[in-house]
Simulated scan of single mutants.
Amino acid sequence: MPMAAEDIEKLILAGIPDARVEITDLAGDGDHYAARVVAESFRGMPRVRQHQRVYEALGGRMGGALHALQLTTATPD
């Protein structure tokens, strides 16, 4: 069963409370999303670790309930 964009956002915010999250449904099917996650707590982290933090926040749903996520992470300007 596909995940709703709101559920993805809630999970990321629960795991990374200082994040600003933008979710885009890429295919209109509730199964392929893009997420932009901006968080001060990412500062000084390599990009791979930033992505790992997001995946940790999703609690193992990648590849299951959440089929595809195009992920962009950043720190605030």
Rank of each mutant, 00 (worst) to 15 (best):
P76C: 12
T24C: 07
P2C: 06
E22V: 03
I12Q: 10
A65M: 02
G59F: 08
A65K: 08
R43Q: 02
H51V: 04
L58V: 10
Y33F: 15
R20K: 15
G63Y: 12
A5S: 09
D77K: 15
A74K: 10
P46L: 02
T72R: 10
G64C: 00
V38D: 08
F42M: 06
T24K: 14
L13I: 11
E22A: 05
G60H: 13
Q70K: 07
R61M: 07
M1V: 04
V38C: 04
A65W: 00
Q70L: 05
S41Q: 02
A34E: 14
M62H: 10
V21M: 04
I8E: 12
Q70Y: 01
M1S: 07
V48P: 03
G28T: 10
Q52E: 06
P2M: 05
E56F: 05
F42V: 07
A14G: 12
S41I: 01
A39W: 01
A39C: 02
I23Y: 08
H32S: 14
L69V: 05
L13A: 13
M62R: 11
I8D: 12
V38E: 07
D31I: 11
R43E: 02
A5Y: 03
T75H: 10
T24M: 10
H67K: 11
M45G: 02
L13P: 09
T73E: 04
G30V: 13
T72W: 00
Q70C: 00
E6M: 05
T75I: 15
G60R: 14
R47K: 08
H67N: 07
R43M: 00
P76V: 06
E6S: 13
A39Y: 03
A14F: 08
Y33K: 15
L26D: 08
E40W: 03
A39H: 02
R20G: 10
R43G: 00
V54E: 03
L11Y: 09
R49G: 01
A27Q: 11
V21P: 02
L13W: 12
P2K: 03
R49I: 04
G28F: 11
H32R: 15
P17R: 11
P17M: 11
D31L: 15
I12R: 14
Y55D: 12
P46D: 04
G44T: 04
R61Y: 08
K10F: 09
A65E: 09
G59N: 13
Y55S: 14
A57T: 13
P2D: 00
V54Q: 09
I16P: 00
R49E: 09
A35M: 14
Q50I: 06
D29T: 15
H51S: 09
D31K: 15
L71H: 07
L71D: 06
G15T: 03
Q50F: 05
A57K: 15
K10D: 13
R53I: 03
A19H: 07
P76G: 08
R61N: 07
E22L: 05
D77Q: 13
I8F: 13
T72H: 03
A5Q: 07
Q50Y: 02
P46C: 07
D7N: 13
D25S: 02
G28M: 12
G15Q: 10
V38N: 04
H32Q: 14
A5I: 04
T72F: 09
A4P: 01
Q52V: 02
A19L: 06
